[in-house]
């Protein structure tokens, strides 16, 4: 239930583009938040990965924004990000203190799969040919992203067999 109130059957190309931009923007911000959480909680490797993901999302956002600018240079935005939370962005609870890069990548992979499912579902109701084309393209991109993340995952060494809990300090009481 990542979004509310989008009537895909009546979605125009302009609104669809804006929506796609918001989806990327949301994902970028969530990854930035995660990176910052990892930094404040001494989990630097995963912080680096989340920053990398934020960079990717920003790149996609910029590409879409450029397209939107060319197609509809003057038309105002009429959709909002209000009810859009985690189409492509990870759920707010997916980060963990001391998560390994492998765990961080797994989160990202799930997100790409989730985004694929979103576009796939939407495509079943979309009528507008232009929107259909855009969403088909975006759905395909998600496949590529999945492959990218999977390739990264394959490069990572396996996590070792030990749990951080068996070495780390106890949590601290603050009041």
């Amino acid at each position: 239930m990542a979004t509310r109130g989008i009537d895909f059957a009546r979605l125009s190309l302009k609104d669809a583009l804006d929506l796609a931009i918001f989806i990327e923007e949301e994902a970028k911000e969530r990854y930035e938040d995660f990176a910052s959480q990892m930094e404040t909680h001494h989990t630097p490797d995963s912080a680096r990965f989340y920053k990398f993901m934020a960079g990717n999302e920003e790149k996609h956002r910029a590409e879409l924004a450029e397209r939107r600018g060319k197609l509809f240079p003057k038309d105002p935005v009429t959709v909002s990000r209000q009810m859009l939370f985690d189409v492509e962005a990870p759920d707010t609870d997916e980060a963990r203190t001391f998560m390994t890069p492998r765990q961080a990548l797994t989160v990202a992979l799930r997100c790409e799969e989730k985004a694929w499912a979103f576009f796939d579902g939407a495509l079943k109701v979309i009528k507008d040919a232009g929107v259909k084309e855009l969403f088909t393209e975006l759905r395909q991109e998600e496949v590529e992203h999945q492959d990218l993340v999977k390739a990264e995952l394959a490069k990572l060494p396996a996590d070792d067999r030990f749990k951080t809990e068996d070495f780390e300090d106890e949590p601290v009481s603050h009041d």
Binding site: G5, D7, R10, M38, T40, T78, V79, Q82, T97
Partner: peptide
């Protein structure tokens, strides 16, 4: 309803610079 009204204030206008100390997750 689509097109939805775009609020004049955005979520980011309510977000401060303070970094949460909450545990990730």
């Amino acid at each position: 309803a689509m097109p939805a009204p775009v609020p004049t204030l955005q979520a980011k206008d309510f977000r401060s610079d303070l970094k949460p100390i909450w545990c990730p997750g």
